[in-house]
Simulated scan of single mutants.
Amino acid sequence: MTGETLWIIDDDMVSQFAIKYKIGQSYPGYKVITFYTVQEALTCLRECSKSKLEIPHKVILDLGLPVLTGWHFLEELEKIHGCICPFDIYIVSAFSNSKDRQRAKYHSLVKGYFEKPLDKIAVDKIFM
Rank of each mutant, 00 (worst) to 15 (best):
Y36W: 00
G29K: 05
D11Q: 06
A122E: 11
F73K: 14
I23H: 02
V14W: 09
D11W: 07
L68I: 04
V59I: 15
K31R: 06
A104G: 12
F17K: 08
S49H: 04
E4G: 00
I91D: 09
L68R: 14
V59P: 08
T43H: 13
G82H: 13
K31F: 02
I126L: 03
R46V: 13
K111T: 08
K50M: 06
V14I: 15
T37K: 07
T69H: 06
E4D: 13
M13N: 11
A104S: 15
F114W: 02
V123N: 01
R46S: 07
R101Q: 15
Q16P: 02
S15G: 00
T69F: 12
C85N: 15
A18H: 09
C85V: 09
A104T: 04
V110A: 09
H72T: 13
V67R: 12
V38H: 02
R101V: 01
K125D: 06
E4M: 13
K52S: 10
F87G: 10
M1K: 08
S108M: 13
D10H: 04
L68M: 14
F95H: 15
Q39P: 00
R101F: 02
V67F: 12
A94Q: 11
F95I: 06
S93R: 02
H107L: 05
V123C: 00
D88T: 09
G24M: 02
D100E: 10
E76I: 03
K31W: 00
S26I: 00
T2I: 14
G82Q: 08
E115M: 10
I89M: 11
K58Y: 14
D100M: 04
L45R: 04
Y90Q: 03
I126S: 03
A41H: 10
Q102R: 11
T43Y: 11
E76S: 10
L53W: 08
L77Q: 11
G112F: 01
Y90I: 07
M128Q: 14
L77K: 08
F35R: 03
P28I: 05
S51M: 12
L109K: 15
K52H: 11
I126M: 08
L68V: 02
K111E: 11
L6H: 05
K125G: 00
I91M: 15
S26N: 07
E75C: 02
D11A: 06
I89T: 15
W7P: 01
C44D: 09
S49Y: 05
K116P: 04
F17G: 01
P66C: 06
M1I: 12
K20L: 01
G70D: 14
V123M: 04
L61K: 02
E47V: 02
G112Y: 01
L109P: 03
G70S: 11
T5N: 12
E76L: 10
I9H: 08
K111C: 09
Y106G: 03
D119N: 11
R103S: 14
E76P: 00
H72C: 09
F87D: 08
S108E: 14
L63N: 05
T5P: 01
L61N: 12
G64N: 15
E78I: 11
P56H: 13
E54A: 14
K20T: 13
H107R: 05
L6F: 04
C83Q: 15
V59H: 13
G29F: 02
E4Y: 09
G24D: 03
E4L: 14
L6I: 15
R46W: 02
F114E: 03
S26P: 00
C85E: 15
L109G: 02
S108H: 12
G64F: 10
I121G: 00
I89A: 07
